[in-house]
Each structure stands twice: as C-alpha cells, then as structure tokens.
Design a protein around this nucleic acid. Structure first.
Length: 543
RNA sequence: GGCGGGGUAGCUCAGUGGCAGAGCAGGGGACUCAUAAGCCCUUGGUCGGUGGUUCGAAUCCGCCCCCCGCUACCA
C-alpha cells in the first residue's frame, strides 16, 4: 500500500428510465473535475458513479415497452455511459445496483441493522394513488365523494396496507444532531444542513425498508421469524419480499468501496471524502444514510455536498417537463471540453441557476474563444514570429509572476470548497491580466526595435513573451481538470510534455508544476492552432 | 400556516451604515501579435413597495407585495 493521501468521492446514482439530460450529468461533470484535480494532485483517487436500477417505475416502464426489465435497463445504462464518455467523464467504477456485489452488500447491511435491533416488522397504510404511490394525507383533495390525488383527480384512491420491514430511524435523532455538531462542514452548503436539523427536531419516524408486493429488487435476506430467507435449493425465498429501492440505492457507496467482499479495500476507501448529491435527495444522504451506517457500525461520510438545479424559464429542468438540454447537442457544438466548461462556469455549484443555450454560447465565446484561446494563440504566434519559436524563460519580477500565487491559492481553495464556478472565475482573472499585459508591453513594438538593433528591446521582448508563455502553461495545468482533452493539446502547442494519463493519473503532484517558473527551461514551442474556434452562429438544437 | 433563503444595470450576480459595483451584452476610440479576438473609454439602475431610526440606509427596524427551499416513504 502506498502512503499517498486517498480521496474517495461519489455522485448520486441516476435512475435510468430515460436518456440522460445535462441536468442529470451536471453533478457527474463536477465530480469528474474534482476527481481529476485529486488525481493530478497526487492523491490516490476513487471516483464512483452509476445507476439506481431497482425502481418500480423502471420495472413498469419496461413492461409497458414489452421488454424484459434487465434488457430495458441495459439499453438505458448504455445511453448514460455513452453520454458520460462524450463528456470525458472517467469514473474508477461505474456501479449498477444490479451488480452482484451490490446485492451482497445490501443484504449484509440489512443483516447488520437487524442484528443491532434496528429492523422490525410492521405495516404501512394510507391512501395509495395507482399512478404515484402512497400520498400524504395533507396533499389530498377532498371531494364530496371522497379524497382524490391532486395530480390524478380522476383516478380513485385505494386505502392500502403494506406489511413490511421498518428501520428504526427514530433512534438516531440525537446521534445525527451530534454528528452535525461535531463535524462542521459535514453537510454543505450550511443552509442545507439547517434544513435537516429542523427536520430532525420535528421528530423522526421509522422508515419502511422492504416491499412485499414487488419482485424487482434485491431479495430481503430475512424472514419474519428472523431466519435466513433462503429456500432449500439455495435460491432466495420470494415470500420475504425485496429491499426497498432507497435502502439499497444508498448502499452503493460502500459497495463501491469494497464492502463486504474486500475488507482491505474497504478499510482503505471508507469513509467517503465526498458525496455529491442534488437538493431533492438531501434528506436521504444526510439523515437516513448516516443512520444506516451508524446502525451497521460503520463511519458516516466525511462530507455531503448538496447542489441545486438547472433552471430554464424559471422552471426546473427535468425529463418529465421535457425542457432539458441533451448532452450530445452540447458536445457537438462546444466540444467535450467546451461543454464541461460552460456547464460548470454558468451553473453555480451551490444553488439553482438559470441556464440557456444562448448563455452557453456567450460564455464559450467570451471565455474560451476570445479570452483564453486567443491569449494562447497570440502568445504562440508572436513567439513563432519574433523568436523563431524559441521559448524564452519567464522573468521573476513581472506583474504576472506577482499575481499568480494569489490566484492559484484562491483557485485551489474554491475547488476544495466545491465552488467549481468560482474557481474558474478566479482563474479567468489571471487570463484577463495576461491579456492586459500583452497590450501594456506591445511586443510588436519591441520586436521592431529589436530588429533595428536595440538590445534592450530584444531583452525586454524575450521577458514579455517568456512571461506570457509561462502564464499560459500555468493556466493549462490548473484548468486541466475542467478541460481534460484541450489541456494536453495546449501543452503540445507550448512545446511542453504532458505527464498525465487520460484520466489525470500518472504524473507528478501538480502543485509543484503550478509555481511560477516551474516549467521546463529552454526548448521550442509547437504549432499554434485555435483550440476553441469562435461560434459565429447560435444554432440552438431543435426540441 | 411554521421555519429559512431571495427580489440591485438588458442578462447573470457581488455588495451588512459613508459618492451604487463586476462580468457579459450595447455604444465609441486607439492599436494590430491574435480566433474582426484583445486593450482603453462609455450608455445604462426610484437597489420590490412603504413608513421609521440616523448627519448619512441597498445595508438597521416595522408593515406590505412577489419568487424559491424545507415541512418524510415517486425516486
């Protein structure tokens, strides 16, 4: 085993009932940036993402389409993986809750909670809408002839009683509150933690963790009498029902760390350093999940980051509304790097943000084509023209050298605080400073004087271009987690070897390369070619 | 209803008692290395409304209007 720092991060797993939209992959892109940052920083990094496949909706959807459930989800999962590949997302494992090791992990978690006295048999009853499931009493519409579901007033509600297993969540209120109190920053942003504290203080009820009426799921491992739910031929006893999808879904995070098959791996990777989740599933990750872990005698995660939604026209982007952006459209127009950049620059990682195709085009042109792409291109072009492509050493006393340490410090701090949009904003302050430096020094004027025999101008020209190429090098290495394909190409243009693999592993700790003057001495640049061609038209995709 | 967040330039937002700001978009200019990009200058705002406190309020207090989140088993 190595003594490198390890870093384990996860996204929520998506339920693959449809092709994925940008609003679904948004957090996966963000997590991929953080994973690449940690790999390049030299941390032994594990990045887990995947799909949540035991939903009843998925089973029903497959039946509507006349497909075997497994065949249906295999096709859907293919769409997720294709979209993630197009966005250059490189997880260390893509977990599916139908994976065999996940079945073992989930059943083991039920056994542990049961052994700890936290699982008991009970019943759940209430008004059931055939289209939506159980409805809360306060949501129902009262009609003269009875109560109705607000979303499906024409469908009669049924009063159903489900016998199933419950988890004693109510037992964990004090321990959860203590966990929040003793671990500042364990749930961020702060207001998301406060919502959960209010929820807990309102009183926690036990939650049901099994379903007896469904067969699509992980077999519940225990019978009512407490015996192992296995038939004489070794197959699961169907009368024991299945584990409720939410209980098994959360467990993917420890399955992905090696639980329970590989104790050494699990000891290395657990607890997770970061769970990235959407605000709609905050409660599951910051109340239910830690309680499940506590019950099993395992540590809760070190941090849960709760992000917001992408909005369009003030409404949440979603598949059901049909107002989502297709990742493939975005990759086709902006390229994989541009797609990642505009998404993470335009959307604040800590709250809801309004986005549009037009805002993405504006951001791409302004930041990538005009500011950064052009900076790289003009710096290389002048080096080729004035110095025959020879790469001069940077000066140590210029304004860019002075500004860089502050920039990189704030940049890394923003990344560590999961403020991915802000990190880019900080880095682009430096891009702006470099562009202003070009105009302030006017290398074309220095070049004319140098050609006329002015030795001072010649020396000055070399320092200015050295500074600009060094600024470009630093930006490229810093921004590489966001622009994983463009960064090596930019390095090639700068004539600098790229020491990292396609997923960010394999090179030296990047912080050593993020110091002014840490680039290779001497050498020549490669060719200059625009990395981010300006978009002259705004071809909004149809539909 | 209760608790919490918010309403500032055309757009996205920063700004917690001292001359209303940034980026983008719009307009003008000088330059020319560059992807007609970059640089400089600039138009633009009853800071949701209203009443107070204060020498002074986007900022503090009261009331009102509007938007959003949480208020448990769709996931």
């Amino acid at each position: 085993m190595t003594d490198r720092r390890r870093y384990y991060l996860t996204t929520a797993i998506a339920y693959p009932n449809n092709r994925p939209g940008l609003h679904t992959l948004y957090e996966v892109i963000g997590a991929d940036v953080l994973a690449r940052r940690h790999r390049m920083a030299g941390d032994e990094t594990r990045f887990l993402t995947g799909t949540d496949e035991h939903s009843v909706n998925i089973h029903q959807r497959a039946q509507e389409l006349g497909l075997e459930t497994r065949d249906f989800i295999d096709g859907m999962v293919r769409l997720f993986r294709d979209a993630e590949d197009a966005l250059l997302i490189a997880p260390d494992r893509f977990i599916r809750t139908t994976d065999p090791d996940h079945r073992r992990a989930s059943q083991e978690m039920v056994r542990r909670a049961f052994a700890n006295g936290d699982v008991y048999q009970g019943s759940y009853e209430g008004w059931y809408c055939p289209n939506e499931g159980f409805r809360n009493l306060t949501d129902l519409i009262e009609e003269a002839d009875g109560v109705r579901c607000p979303n499906h007033p024409d469908v009669p509600l049924q009063w159903l009683t489900e016998h199933n297993w419950f988890f004693r969540l109510s037992r964990y209120a004090d321990r959860l509150l203590a966990w929040y109190a003793e671990n500042p920053g364990v749930v961020e942003p702060e207001y998301r933690k406060n919502e959960m504290i209010a929820f807990i203080r309102n009183g926690l009820e036990d939650i049901s963790i099994s379903r007896e009426t469904f067969s699509w799921g992980i077999p519940f491992p225990i019978r009512a009498d407490g015996s192992e739910a296995v038939l004489p031929d070794g197959t699961p006893d169907p009368s024991a029902g299945v584990i409720y999808v939410w209980f098994d879904a959360l467990i993917n995070y420890i399955t992905g760390a090696g639980f329970p098959d590989d104790p050494d791996a699990f000891a290395r990777w657990w607890p997770a350093d970061l769970h990235i989740v959407g605000k709609d599933i905050n409660r599951f990750h910051t109340i239910i999940w830690p309680a499940m872990l506590m019950s099993a005698g395992l540590e809760p995660p070190r941090k849960v980051w709760v992000h917001g939604w992408l909005l369009t026209g003030g409404e949440r982007m979603s598949k059901s509304r049909g107002n989502f952006l297709d990742p493939h459209d975005i990759v086709r127009t902006f390229g994989p790097d541009g797609a990642r950049y505009v998404t993470l620059r335009e959307v604040a990682f800590d709250k809801d943000t309004e986005v549009s195709w037009e805002s993405f085009v504006r951001r791409y042109n302004a930041d990538l084509a005009n500011d950064f792409g052009n900076l790289l291109n003009r710096s290389l072009s002048m080096t080729g023209r004035y110095l025959d492509g020879e790469r001069p050493a940077p000066g140590m006393g210029g304004p860019l050298a002075a500004a860089w340490p502050g920039i990189v410090g704030r940049y890394v701090a923003a990344l560590e605080g999961c403020l991915l949009h802000e990190a880019l904003g900080v880095l682009w302050e430096f891009v702006g400073a470099a562009n202003r430096y070009v105009d302030a020094e006017a290398p074309w004027t220095l070049a004319k004087s140098a050609k006329a025999g002015d030795a001072d101008a010649e020396g000055r020209l070399r320092v200015v271009l050295g500074d600009l190429l060094e600024a470009c090098r630093l930006i490229v290495f810093a921004v590489a987690p966001y622009l994983p394909a463009a960064a090596p190409r930019a390095a090639e243009q700068l004539g600098i070897a790229w020491p990292y693999g396609p997923d960010g592993n394999g090179g030296p700790p990047v912080d050593g390369l993020l110091r002014w003057g840490a680039g290779p001495a001497g050498g020549t640049i490669g060719g200059a070619a625009p990395l981010f061609p300006r978009l002259e038209t705004e071809p909004a995709p149809a539909g």
